[in-house]
Amino acid sequence: MVLKIWQDIEKGKLHPLFLVTGTENFLLQETTKKIVQAGLNEEEKDFNLSVHDMEETSVDVAIEDAETLPFLGEKRIVIIQNPVFLTAEKKKEKIDHNLDRLIQYIQEPAPFTTMVFSAPYEKLDERKKITKLIKKQAQIVEAKNLSNNETELFIHSLAKQEGNTIESAAVLEIMFLTNGNLTAISQEMNKLCTYAGFGNDITQELTSQLVARSLEQNIFELIDKVVNKKGEKALQIFYDLLKTNEEPIKILSLITTQFRLILQTKQLSSAGYGQKQIAGNIKIHPYRVKLALEQARLFDEEELKDIIKQLADADYELKTGKKDKKLIIELFLLKLFK
Rank of each mutant, 00 (worst) to 15 (best):
residue 223 I to V: 15
residue 79 I to T: 04
residue 134 I to T: 00
residue 320 T to L: 11
residue 110 A to M: 08
residue 247 E to P: 02
residue 258 Q to S: 06
residue 11 K to Q: 14
residue 143 A to E: 07
residue 273 Y to H: 13
residue 68 T to M: 11
residue 195 Y to E: 11
residue 157 S to W: 01
residue 80 I to D: 02
residue 123 K to S: 13
residue 64 E to P: 00
residue 244 T to C: 00
residue 127 R to E: 13
residue 146 L to S: 02
residue 228 N to W: 04
residue 145 N to R: 10
residue 90 K to W: 03
residue 42 E to R: 12
residue 172 L to A: 14
residue 196 A to R: 06
residue 148 N to F: 06
residue 2 V to W: 04
residue 292 A to I: 08
residue 108 E to H: 15
residue 281 N to I: 00
residue 130 I to N: 01
residue 70 P to C: 06
residue 61 V to R: 15
residue 195 Y to A: 07
residue 245 N to T: 14
residue 327 L to G: 06
residue 106 I to A: 01
residue 177 L to G: 01
residue 304 L to Q: 03
residue 29 Q to K: 12
residue 201 D to Y: 00
residue 144 K to Y: 05
residue 302 E to L: 10
residue 281 N to M: 14
residue 216 E to D: 15
residue 252 L to T: 02
residue 322 K to L: 14
residue 291 L to E: 00
residue 140 I to S: 00
residue 180 G to T: 02
residue 210 L to F: 13
residue 71 F to Q: 09
residue 311 L to W: 04
residue 48 N to Y: 08
residue 1 M to I: 09
residue 217 Q to F: 07
residue 263 L to K: 03
residue 66 A to G: 05
residue 167 E to P: 02
residue 115 M to F: 09
residue 309 K to Q: 15
residue 272 G to F: 07
residue 164 N to P: 00
residue 21 T to P: 00
residue 194 T to C: 03
residue 286 P to M: 05
residue 231 G to N: 09
residue 86 L to D: 02
residue 56 E to L: 11
residue 254 L to K: 10
residue 216 E to W: 03
residue 302 E to T: 13
residue 88 A to M: 10
residue 131 T to F: 06
residue 59 V to T: 07
residue 160 K to A: 08
residue 249 I to Y: 13
residue 210 L to G: 01
residue 133 L to W: 00
residue 236 Q to K: 15
residue 12 G to C: 09
residue 37 Q to V: 06
residue 72 L to T: 08
residue 176 F to P: 01
residue 5 I to M: 07
residue 49 L to R: 08
residue 174 I to N: 02
residue 145 N to Q: 10
residue 99 L to H: 09
residue 202 I to R: 02
residue 72 L to S: 12
residue 200 N to S: 11
residue 135 K to D: 05
residue 36 V to T: 05
residue 327 L to R: 12
residue 28 L to R: 05
residue 102 L to G: 02
residue 298 L to G: 08
residue 168 S to W: 08
residue 252 L to W: 06
residue 230 K to Y: 01
residue 10 E to A: 12
residue 154 F to G: 03
residue 203 T to V: 10
residue 161 Q to M: 09
residue 105 Y to L: 12
residue 108 E to V: 09
residue 188 E to N: 12
residue 74 E to P: 01
residue 174 I to C: 04
residue 252 L to H: 03
residue 150 E to T: 07
residue 181 N to H: 08
residue 96 D to C: 06
